[in-house]
Amino acid sequence: ITQEQFILASQSLHLQRPGCDTVYPVGLYGWRKRCLYFFMLLLLVTMIVNLALTVWIIKVMNFSLDSLLVLRSEKNVTLNVRNDRGQLTGQLTVGPEDVEAQFQRLQVRSADGGRLLFAANEEEVTMTAEKFTVTGSEGAVFGHSVETPLIRARASEDLKLESLTRTLTMEAPRGVQVSADEGPLKVSGRKDLQLESTEGEILLDASTIQLGGLPLGVYAASPSPTSRDQDVYEVCVCPSGKMYLSPAESSSTCQSVSNICLWS
């Protein structure tokens, strides 16, 4: 090969050889890099503020795994219960002066959750505890009737049923029993005390029966109407049922002092 041919061949090969690729820089530069650093710094600040607020809320609300949950409010605290359709089925409101509960049925059970102690709904209130104690000085006040199988006082304490302005009525289809096993039984009233039996009898069964405070009729034919030596009297009954005492003589003196019946 001549020198000219070699030069031409070398030039042709040089022309066919591909050129070098363009080199591009890798990474973020300029405003993109500054924006990325800014957003990372903003995210870090947000996380720190969120963590600080969470710790502050836990501290203020006294949230703890080892103590009771305390909810505080300057007004009311309301707990709402809703069903799967979002309808309100129950509500508990604790206010500064009262506690209000709105439920279809309210139940209070024992510590183990087995025995029902108190239940209330729109129709009735049920108490199944062994004792119902009222410690107020005025006792228990009922606006209407009370139905119970037993009313008993504590040991060494008196049981008192009192109606200050109205009547006191005890009724039962098979009878009412009032008894005092270890002490006296006293029934008193400011006005009339009436014992009535429509289909039976009234039985006073005791070794001693005393009717104290009966009016004393004075026998006009007695030589000493105001004599205090009179030890024996007879019991007289007016047509109205009023009873009084009359000095006992050999015969009845009720007719002689029957003027007491005129005022009955």
Score class of each variant (00 low, 15 high):
Arg109Lys: 10
Ser110Asp: 14
Ala111Thr: 10
Gly113Phe: 03
Gly113Tyr: 04
Arg115Ser: 14
Leu116Glu: 12
Leu116Cys: 07
Leu116Arg: 04
Leu116Gln: 11
Leu117Cys: 12
Leu117Glu: 14
Leu117Phe: 09
Ala119Leu: 10
Ala119Met: 10
Ala119Arg: 07
Ala119Ser: 15
Ala120Glu: 05
Ala120His: 06
Asn121Tyr: 06
Asn121Arg: 07
Glu123Thr: 14
Glu123His: 12
Glu123Cys: 02
Val125Gln: 08
Val125Gly: 04
Met127Leu: 15
Met127Ser: 15
Thr128Met: 10
Ala129Asp: 09
Ala129Met: 13
Ala129Tyr: 02
Lys131Trp: 00
Phe132Met: 07
Val134Phe: 03
Gly136Trp: 00
Glu138His: 14
Ala140Pro: 00
Val141Leu: 15
Val141Cys: 06
Phe142Ser: 08
Phe142Arg: 03
Phe142Gly: 06
Gly143Cys: 01
Gly143Tyr: 02
Val146Leu: 15
Val146Gly: 09
Glu147Tyr: 07
Glu147His: 10
Thr148Met: 09
Pro149Met: 05
Pro149Asn: 13
Ile151Trp: 04
Arg152Trp: 01
Ala153Ser: 15
Arg154Gln: 10
Ala155Ile: 04
Ser156Lys: 12
Ser156Tyr: 02
Ser156Trp: 00
Glu157Met: 10
Glu157Asp: 06
Asp158Ser: 08
Leu159Trp: 03
Lys160Trp: 01
Lys160Arg: 12
Leu161Pro: 07
Glu162Arg: 14
Glu162Ser: 15
Ser163Thr: 13
Ser163Asn: 12
Leu164Phe: 08
Leu164Pro: 05
Thr165Ala: 11
Thr165Ile: 12
Arg166Cys: 07
Arg166Val: 09
Thr167Ala: 07
Thr167Ser: 06
Thr167Asn: 05
Thr167Lys: 04
Met170Val: 15
Glu171Lys: 00
Ala172Ile: 01
Pro173Lys: 07
Arg174His: 11
Arg174Trp: 00
Gly175His: 02
Gly175Pro: 08
Val176Asp: 09
Val176Pro: 10
Gln177Val: 14
Val178Pro: 00
Ser179Thr: 12
Ser179Arg: 09
Ala180Tyr: 02
Ala180Leu: 02
Asp181Ser: 12
Glu182Cys: 02
Glu182Met: 04
Gly183Met: 04
Leu185Val: 09
Leu185Cys: 08
Lys186Val: 13
Lys186Phe: 04
Val187Glu: 00
Ser188Asn: 09
Gly189Ser: 14
Gly189Trp: 00
Gly189Arg: 06
Arg190Ser: 12
Arg190Trp: 01
Arg190His: 10
Lys191Asn: 09
Lys191Thr: 08
Asp192His: 13
Gln194Ser: 11
Gln194Arg: 04
Gln194His: 07
Leu195Thr: 06
Glu196Leu: 10
Glu196Gly: 05
Ser197Glu: 02
Glu199Leu: 11
Glu199Arg: 15
Glu201Gln: 08
Glu201Lys: 03
Glu201Leu: 02
Ile202Gln: 04
Leu203Ile: 15
Leu203Cys: 08
Leu204Val: 14
Asp205Lys: 14
Asp205Thr: 09
